[in-house]
């Protein structure tokens, strides 16, 4: 708690933490948007969400190690993860999509373990990063440093989000997805190929995660076992915001980024993971406690 004193003595650190947190929070919001999409449309909580982020990160890192700019990694990871998502849907997800929720949680948990161990074998458990080389901005008499790549990442994350929202609102496929989300059976009766809708939804989600992973490896690091933390972050954001609430997802994502940034500083980096997972427990209990006044439970 010594760091609290520092924070009180020099409030400018607060600005630094807030900016860091908000910039990374946009990426959290992007991944959470994908999770909300799959959850809302397919009624699946995708536990391997974080592994898709990690996969996108490693693809970008691989390109980077071959001398290709990490920015190229964003579209490449998007496309590759779309294919990975499609394949996963065809092999596994389509068989669990209309089953008990716990079955799909466990199946995607299995995929998550499979992918993290696979990456562990291929890339070892070391931490990797891909330097975009954009330099750093200095604000407030050099008291606050902002790497440009984080700003670019923030903007790109929001742009991907905007494109997706437009796709959902304007395109035929987007309409079909929204219709399926509201009532899959009715959509099927009205001639929508829900199987295809599910495949596209799941693949788009994987692709979003891939793009987010590319941003993560540029602004931060990628590591084989980091996936679950991203899954849990997305889950928390969706639980706080609600499934169909896009502005809520953005606000909750940015908020989580800021909260993590402060927690990392105050508690020390070694408690960062502990903070995320404890926060998950606390948020769920708190939400449920609030509902108890109306004699309801989270479901």
């Amino acid at each position: 708690m010594d760091n609290l004193q520092i924070l009180l003595d020099a409030p400018i650190f607060s600005v630094q933490l807030l900016i860091d947190g908000l910039l990374v929070g946009a990426i959290f919001a992007l991944v959470a948007y994908g999770m909300a999409l799959v959850w809302g449309v397919m009624n699946i909580i995708n536990i391997c969400q974080g592994e898709y982020v990690m996969l996108g990160g490693f693809i970008t890192y691989l390109l980077f190690s071959w001398g290709i700019s990490p920015f190229v990694g964003i579209p490449v990871a998007f496309v590759v993860l779309y294919l990975v998502g499609w394949l996963t849907y065809r092999v596994v997800i389509c068989r669990v999509v209309e089953q008990d929720l716990f079955i799909s949680i466990l199946a995607t948990f299995g995929i998550s373990i499979l992918l993290q161990q696979l990456m562990n074998q291929l890339f070892t458990a070391d931490v990797q990063t891909a330097e975009a080389g954009l330099g750093t901005a200095f604000l407030f008499n050099n008291m606050v440093t902002v790497p440009w790549v984080k700003v670019v990442g923030f903007v790109l994350a929001l742009s991907v989000g905007v494109v997706l929202v437009l796709f959902m609102g304007r395109s035929r496929m987007g309409q079909a997805i929204r219709a399926t989300a509201q009532n899959a059976r009715a959509a099927r009766i009205m001639g929508i190929d829900t199987d295809r809708v599910y495949a596209v939804t799941y693949s788009i989600n994987a692709a979003i995660c891939g793009a987010a992973g590319a941003l993560v490896v540029m602004t931060w690091v990628v590591q084989a076992f980091q996936g679950l933390a991203y899954t849990v972050r997305s889950f928390m954001i969706v639980v706080v915001a609600g499934i169909g609430n896009l502005p809520g997802v953005v606000v909750a994502g940015l908020g989580l980024g800021a909260a993590e940034s402060y927690a990392g500083f105050l508690l020390g980096a070694e408690f960062q993971t502990a903070f995320i997972f404890s926060l998950l427990v606390v948020i769920l209990l708190w939400r449920n406690y609030r509902l108890r006044a109306q004699r309801k439970v989270l479901r």
Partner: peptide, 25 residues
């Protein structure tokens, strides 16, 4: 135990991992 279904599953997942991370500190 007042949480239901998948919320219980994911909350307990968080509990197990958080406990490990806290013990490590």
């Amino acid at each position: 135990l007042r949480l239901r279904g998948h919320y219980f599953a994911i909350c307990t997942l968080g509990l197990g991992i958080a406990a490990g991370e806290i013990a490590a500190g």
